[in-house]
Design a protein around this nucleic acid. Structure first.
Lengths: 328, 328
DNA sequence: TTGTAGGCGTTATCAA
DNA sequence: TTGATAACGCCTACAA
């Protein structure tokens, strides 16, 4: 009730909205009074009359994977920069991702970004009914064709496969991530397919829970026996798993990387480029992917009827030091 | 407009509010119709009439420090579990934390949790005027007495100092974090004071920007000269800096930890307990600290006039392998 | 248990 | 440029 400052209430609204028809003098007077009274406009109320709430929901998976916390950080930065805010959701292990999505849709947000969760078609229908665009980041939903931004997972994995093969590796082990996740599946597929075209390669696959601890455990339990048959090279479907694997190989088995075993990951998280690892990997250009995700979001707002866009972005090969030609 | 389903509008409201006076039968009918029509209640609108918006703002610093991303993760989990949501804010390097705080206060949130930012007294006044409680997490504001939850930084640092001294260290180096941050200052102070009471200890301090890269650089530039005078032990004011330092010591200088130099950190982040480090450190019990922070928030809501609480929580000493008695 | 009426703080529309 | 007035979607009385 800053109109106790002697002006009408719409005038206050105009004072706070740049570009509204109001005298500079009057605006200044109102803003001064507001500062005096400790008044700030209520954004939720404004979102009622306005169509847009200036809030974007971001649904993340486990932030313990630095790829996701880096991504979230980036989303918050970029969204904040455009005068909007982030409503953050996470999907816990024991949680149904549909429930979380449902929660998010109860807010009249300007859009929902899904970085890690499966979206069922009923949720897609609901979001459409509500007119809230849903964009997939680093993920794709097979049936529903939602706008998606993702890295060329197949291509990147294939390039890593070729590098390791060229370096002399023949026996490969793949550490899979979330079995149901489109990202993990695409990378495994790309890796497998590339090896099929190369001579003498054989591949084994095990599950690593898509986490550091999962990969560590999987590595230990796979090789912790008297006459383990070691592979020449291991591909961790993401960096955090590759790091877990590296720590197990070195810490638990005393193996040397790449002398005893080559190793590669995927994502390009900071940790993987630090001293103990310098992991060979493919970097997902997070900054750019986030930018494009938000572009798709804005696009979805304007041209409703347009076909869902799918943006596939090339990752950057990072050589690292964990792939090296055999000398034997 | 779900009242096209043949009932009054308040009935719909009651159907969605557990415990409201309505026949079970009618509620079911309404909920069914809602599902049919793809209707979900608008939370922002409800926050207008209701006093509470069910939204908590969390202002974080750089999420590249795992301590903060773990904390954020924990906040989101716990807040979500109580049927509320998190509006996430971050303070960038180039940003005024007051501006971010101001942004947050434009939303009629149920509270603001500040995990990394300085809060000026004018912001405190503003928040009081708006009736929005502000709680500090892992931080304290000297002048204003805001409710705060923090670890016993002095005590933890002192304990580490004593351990390293007992192991034979005499020449110490402290890697400071944010010079203006209360957390870094308290730890440095605690470390310094403890050493004063011990025999023959001398301390040098340098700045490490409170980040991995900053600590790495600081370590390199401090010792990258012909006849560097190496200390016996280094205390990184937080784990991420200690890790940066460790990587520099080993990768750049080929030093062994703890054989050549002892090392300790603070926070107890996961990364620091992994194979390459097993860092001696003091763990901040994040889960518990977050719980208490939210308790303070709820308390602030109810008893307005109460004196600001300050909860100091003991950290857990983690032995690690980076402090070890000298044999020479 | 139900429906009617009024109000939450803001913006859009329209005359003035 | 301004100020009334009517929404926006919901909730809290109040009365039925």
């Amino acid at each position: 009730m800053a109109k106790l400052a002697g002006v009408s209430q719409p005038a206050v609204s105009r004072a706070f909205n740049p570009g509204a028809p109001i005298t500079k003098e009057k605006r200044d007077r109102i803003l001064a009074a507001a500062r005096e009274l400790g008044y700030v406009p209520n954004v939720f109320a404004s979102s009622l009359s306005r169509s847009s709430s200036k809030i974007v929901a971001v649904i993340s998976g486990n932030l313990n994977n630095p790829f996701y916390s880096e991504s979230l950080q980036c989303f918050v930065e970029q969204i904040q920069r455009t005068g909007r805010q982030v409503l953050a959701f996470t999907v816990q292990e024991d949680q149904n991702s549909d429930d979380v999505m449902m929660q998010a849709l109860r807010y009249p947000v300007d859009g929902v970004v899904v970085t890690s969760a499966t979206v069922t078609s009923s949720m897609v229908k609901l979001s459409e009914g509500l007119g809230i665009p849903v964009i997939m980041y680093n993920r794709r939903v097979p049936d529903a064709n939602l706008p998606s931004v993702l890295c060329d997972n197949e291509g990147g994995a294939a390039a890593l496969a070729r590098r390791m093969h060229a370096a002399g590796a023949r026996k490969f082990l793949v550490l899979r991530g979330d079995p149901a996740g489109s990202t993990s599946m695409a990378r495994v597929q790309g890796f497998r397919d590339a090896l099929k075209k190369l001579k003498g390669a054989q591949v084994e696959e095990i599950d690593g829970q898509s986490s550091y601890a999962g990969a560590y455990r999987a590595t230990v339990s796979r090789f912790d026996k008297p006459l383990a048959d070691w592979p020449d090279a291991i591909f961790g479907v993401n960096d955090i798993m590759a790091i877990g694997c590296a720590d197990a190989l070195r810490g638990h088995f005393g193996k040397k990387i790449p002398d005893d075993i080559m190793l590669a990951g995927f994502d390009g998280i900071r940790e993987a480029q630090r001293e103990p690892y310098h992991l060979a990997t493919v970097r997902q250009p997070i900054e750019r992917m986030v930018t494009e995700t938000l572009e798709l979001l804005d696009a979805a707002k304007s041209d409703e009827g347009a076909p869902a866009a799918l943006r596939v972005i090339q990752g950057d090969m990072i050589p690292g030091v964990t792939i090296q030609s055999r000398e034997d």
